[in-house]
Amino acid sequence: MPGMDRLNSVLRRVPAWPIYAIAAAYAAWRFWLAVTGQLGPDPVDRLTADSGTLALQMLIAGLTISVLRKTIGLNLLRYRRAIGLTAFFFAAAHFLVWLLLDLALRWDQILADLSKRPFVMIGMAALLLLLPLALTSNNMSLRRLGALRWRQLHWLTYPAVLLAALHHLIGVKVVTAAPVAYLAATVLLLVARPALMRRRS
């Protein structure tokens, strides 16, 4: 596909750093709105919901990258690290809003949530799975671990996204289209990837 080749060669000149800049600026802007009372009467709930949803969306976006390359030949691999780290950034923000602003360090309640509520435990598990991925999303870690071990470690993305989508779905009060769509997209992408790999080999 010559069109796609041209697009890929244009994309080679588009750097990934704006993704970090936009994510950081967006988070700072939302936080500022929340501080100044411009996110409605329950800013904690808004920040919790928005950061969680964004994290999930970025995680799913990360999953699409290899699928897009194998299906339509679009090469976005160089953005995957930025997308993954941004997803972790919003997931961590989601966790911190919950810990510091929502539960406001009420440790008895926090520990009870973490020890007996599957909904919270699943979300926490997703974040913990993402942590080593975020810590090793740099060239030095890639060199130190070696490509194969690094790649194997980063397979943790798949269970993490699945848990995140599940956390989102079972966290809602009534099931609407969005959380179902996120979970469906996640499952589809998880199934598509190995199928596409097999077709190649």
Partner: peptide
């Protein structure tokens, strides 16, 4: 008595702002 998915021991006060706590 907790809701199965969250505690009912405390509550956020709507209108108390970002740092209103519980």
């Amino acid at each position: 008595v907790d809701h199965p998915r969250w505690s009912q021991a405390s509550e956020r006060v709507v209108g108390s702002g970002l740092f209103g706590g519980r």
